[in-house]
C-alpha cells in the first residue's frame, strides 16, 4: 500500500492531536487507541492499494474532530475518578472534558466554574481578613446596591458591611458554596454516567 507524503502528514497530524487529547489515559492504552485509529484510517482511505487525498479527507471528516474523539475515551474515566475522589479539582477536570461532548456538560461546567470561584472568593477573603482589614464585602456607594468582595476600599462613598464577621460568614458561605457545587456536579455526573452504562443485569 502506498501513502503519498501529504496524506501521511495529514494522518500524522490527526493522530498527534488525538494523542494530545488522550492525556490522563495510561500510556499503553493511549498508544493502542492511536494505532487502532491509524489502522482504521489507512484501511478505509485506501482504494486499490493507494490512499487518495479525497478519500482520506472524507474518512477524517466522518471520524470527527480528534479532540472530541479523545474526549469520548477520556471523559468516562475522568468522571469516574471525580466521583470517587469528590475533590473539586478532579470534578472540574472531569466536567471540562464532559463540556466538549454535550450541552448539559457545558452547563454543568459553567455552574461548577462559577460555584467554585464564588465559594473560593468567600473562603479566601475570610482567610486574608486578619492580615488585611481592607478585605471585606463592600457596598459600593450610598445610592448603589452593588456589592464588591475582595481586597478593596470604597470609602468615603461606600462602606464595608460585615467587619470581622466576614471571617465566620466567609468560611461558612465559601465552604457551603463549594460543597453545594460539588453536590450538584456529582449528582449530574452520576446521572450522566448511569445513562451511558449498559443495563447489564436485566430482570429475569
Amino acid at each position: 500500500m502506498t501513502i503519498a507524503s501529504d496524506s501521511q502528514r495529514k494522518i500524522d497530524t490527526y493522530l498527534r492531536r488525538l494523542r494530545q487529547g488522550l492525556r490522563g489515559v495510561r500510556e499503553e492504552d493511549a498508544r493502542d487507541i492511536v494505532e487502532e485509529l491509524r489502522s482504521h484510517i489507512v484501511e478505509k482511505a485506501a482504494a486499490g492499494g493507494e490512499v487518495t487525498t479525497e478519500r482520506l479527507e472524507s474518512v477524517l471528516t466522518v471520524l470527527g474532530s480528534p479532540e472530541v474523539l479523545a474526549s469520548q475515551y477520556v471523559t468516562d474515566d475522568l468522571l469516574a475518578q471525580a466521583e470517587s475522589s469528590r475533590a473539586p479539582w478532579m470534578i472540574l477536570r472531569g466536567v471540562f472534558h464532559w463540556a466538549m461532548l454535550s450541552v448539559s456538560g457545558c452547563l454543568v461546567c459553567l455552574v461548577c466554574t462559577v460555584g467554585y470561584m464564588l465559594g473560593g472568593a468567600f473562603f479566601l477573603a475570610a482567610l486574608i481578613k486578619p492580615f488585611n482589614p481592607k478585605v471585606g464585602l463592600w457596598k459600593i456607594g450610598p445610592d448603589n446596591y452593588s456589592l464588591a468582595l475582595g481586597m478593596t476600599d470604597f470609602r468615603p462613598q461606600g462602606h464595608e458591611l460585615l467587619g470581622w464577621l466576614l471571617i465566620p460568614i466567609g468560611l461558612c458561605v465559601g465552604g457551603g458554596t463549594v460543597l453545594l457545587t460539588s453536590y450538584v456536579a456529582l449528582g449530574s455526573i452520576r446521572k450522566f454516567r448511569q445513562s451511558r452504562k449498559l443495563r447489564l443485569n436485566p430482570r429475569s
Binding site: S104, L180, V184, G187, K191, F192, S195, R196
Partner: peptide, 15 residues
C-alpha cells in the same frame, strides 16, 4: 440552580 442543571442533564439522556 440545582434543579435546572439536574433537569437538563436528565433531559439530554433520558427524555
Amino acid at each position: 440552580m440545582y434543579y435546572i442543571v439536574y433537569g437538563m442533564a436528565q433531559d439530554e439522556s433520558d427524555e
